[in-house]
Amino acid sequence: MDTVTHTLFGVILYRAIPKTGMDKPMTRALLLTSLVGSQIPDIDVVSQWWDSSGQYLMWHRGITHSIFLAPVWALLISLVCLLLFKTKDWRLFWIGLLAVFIHDTSDIFNAWGTGYLEPFTQQRLTFGTVPIVDLVFWVLILGGFVVTRWKRHLPTHRVFQGVWALIALHIAVQSIQGYAIYDSAKERYEQVALAADFVPWSYQVIGKAGDTVEISQATTAFGELKLLHRLPTATQADLTDLFAQNPAARTLQQWAPLVVIVDEPGRTGLYDPRFYRNGQSFLFEYIDKK
């Protein structure tokens, strides 16, 4: 998910917790825990400052997003709260753990994926059933704030617990339909990947068969695939020079579920077709031929 969504998740997590009997230091610690826990896995973005070997794709959303690291993040946040607010309460650990869990788990539903099971495997876990920026989340969260203003007699934490339930329902509906589309497409292609569109219940299906990659659109699990692009891929191309001169290309091939290989007179490269827009993918690594 994008940074704004993760921040909003932290805000509504805080709002969904009943605070009866909590003193001010505890509520402040709880707010800090919810916000930091919802953001801290993305601390790996700093790795691009020193990346000189083309490994950033594997580092970003890598080990910091591992579900096995979630308790470590939660413990660190609890210790920070102890230092800043003099609060010693196990609820801060559990809320921190929940916030990190929500961040890590929500990220596996979009096309970028995460190293959810690192260090035991470097394979990216990705479902591709929810877009990275999902405006439905924003609408549901905004609706929660509107309800708390309009229906002031309703307990705030109950309203936002309801928002969380609707968010979970939205993810479930998107993912069930996405899985049905993915499962159906597997019969047509050697390799298949899914990428949710910004419009709810709309997906792009990326399938490879032989020397061709097709990008099709599906609207709901009951609709037919509509072919958008048919892309040739040079599966027999020699990529030795590409990987030697541009290490990020090897990383991209390892990171992506499938790639399109370009072998033209002027350049050799590869790109991730899940991010193919307006005739190009923003994840494209290549070298110019001499």
Rank of each mutant, 00 (worst) to 15 (best):
A74M: 09
L92S: 10
I67Q: 00
T126C: 04
L140T: 01
R28S: 10
Q280A: 14
T235Q: 09
P155K: 09
F68D: 00
F243W: 10
P273F: 07
T129N: 03
Y116V: 10
M1Y: 13
K226N: 13
Q39H: 12
V46E: 10
L135H: 11
P18I: 00
K289A: 05
V147Y: 01
K289Y: 10
A218I: 07
W90C: 08
L169Y: 09
E187Q: 13
L31Y: 11
A249T: 08
I77K: 02
L194H: 06
Q217M: 11
V147P: 00
V213M: 02
V133F: 13
T212D: 02
Y276T: 07
D241K: 12
L135V: 15
G207H: 05
W112C: 06
D89H: 10
T3Q: 05
R250C: 03
E118H: 06
A172N: 07
L76C: 14
L231A: 05
R188T: 15
D107Q: 07
F68P: 02
R188H: 13
G144V: 14
L117P: 05
L135A: 13
E285N: 04
D263Y: 01
L31E: 07
L194R: 02
L154M: 14
V36W: 03
D23Q: 08
K289T: 11
L31I: 05
Y286G: 01
H170Q: 06
A256M: 01
W150H: 04
A237Y: 00
D51L: 01
T5V: 09
M22R: 02
I261E: 04
M58N: 15
V173C: 09
L231G: 09
Q253K: 11
G54K: 05
L125F: 14
H157N: 11
Q245A: 10
W49R: 06
Y179P: 07
T105H: 01
T268W: 00
Y189A: 01
A16E: 07
L140P: 01
H103C: 02
S216G: 08
D272L: 02
Q39Y: 06
F85E: 13
K290T: 15
I215S: 03
I63E: 05
F198D: 12
N246Y: 07
P155S: 04
A193M: 01
A111L: 00
L82T: 15
S53Y: 13
T129V: 10
L117W: 12
A165Q: 08
A218D: 02
G37T: 11
T156M: 11
W50L: 06
I206G: 04
C81W: 08
L142N: 00
A168K: 01
D23F: 01
D197M: 13
A111H: 02
V146S: 08
I167K: 02
S52G: 10
F198H: 12
L225E: 15
Q55R: 14
L239M: 12
H65Y: 03
D44S: 04
R158K: 14
Y182M: 08
A218G: 06
Q39M: 14
A244N: 12
F284T: 07
K289E: 11
H170A: 03
L97D: 02
T114F: 00
V139A: 15
V133L: 13
A16D: 08
W49A: 13
P155I: 08
V260I: 11
P131Y: 06
H170W: 15
L31M: 14
V199C: 05
I141Q: 03
P232E: 11
A165M: 12
